[in-house]
Amino acid sequence: MIPAAFDYIVPDSLEAAAASLADGGENAKVMAGGHSLLPMMKLRLAQPSVVIDLKRLDSLRQIQADGGALRIGALVTHHQVETSSEVNENCPLLALTAGSIGDPQVRNRGTIGGSVVHGDPAADWPAALLALGAEVTLTSSGGSRSVAAGDFFLGPLTTAAEPNEILTGVSVPVPAAGTRATYRKVKQKASGFAIVGIAVCLRTDGDTCTDVGIGVTGLAGTPFRATAAEDQLRGKALTADAVAAAAAQVAEGVDALGDIHASGEFRSHLARLNTARAIQDALDG
């Protein structure tokens, strides 16, 4: 319950934050809302010697629709995403995903940046970000770079962010008009995390699927984009058989996680089932 002691820094600028992080090295941690970091610190699974609180960086609290992309700052809370009119108009999948995270209190304080950079393999954000082809922006003293969501998640609590990099925002291409999307989550009843979460983003021309993104979280140690399943759909008529064939691909070759809540075999089954159901929901929606 009680974190180990640390030094606390509240930088006034992103540059200062990056400099502090560079100084602090491996033992420094950046904090946004604190809802991924603090739980680890309370259990002393994380014991940073320096915590750099980004709370004064108001520029990271913005949601902007800009040049065909939604730019969401790292400090934007899940609740802001859930209720933002810009998000709901341009990309309701993000709002739906945000609303399925944790609970109201957690959504009020937890941030998209903090959650994404934490890299929890059962978090909700990765599914939507992968399905939508989002990019994350990483900033260090040396400058900024963008990393595609598909290249960002590397393993349990492991991401492409270097120790000296701050995740400053997420950029999501605004789906073309007519895109249908949904997120289906099988909730781990105790923690509220995803046993399996499937985000589907679908564009159709008549009965034919013109483009599709399927993001999968919870199933494996790394959230991933189900490209084989997507390939089964792209350019095809969305018949029940086609949907079933695509869903069947979603866990192929995946080293599925197993724990007391669901074995790997069941998780794989749930991934297939919910992929099929998510596609159907998207079509029905």
Partner: peptide, 13 residues
């Protein structure tokens, strides 16, 4: 004005 879990915030925040 927003409900939060005070066990998951630092006083300094």
């Amino acid at each position: 004005g927003a409900a939060v879990k005070s066990c998951t915030l630092l006083a300094v925040q």
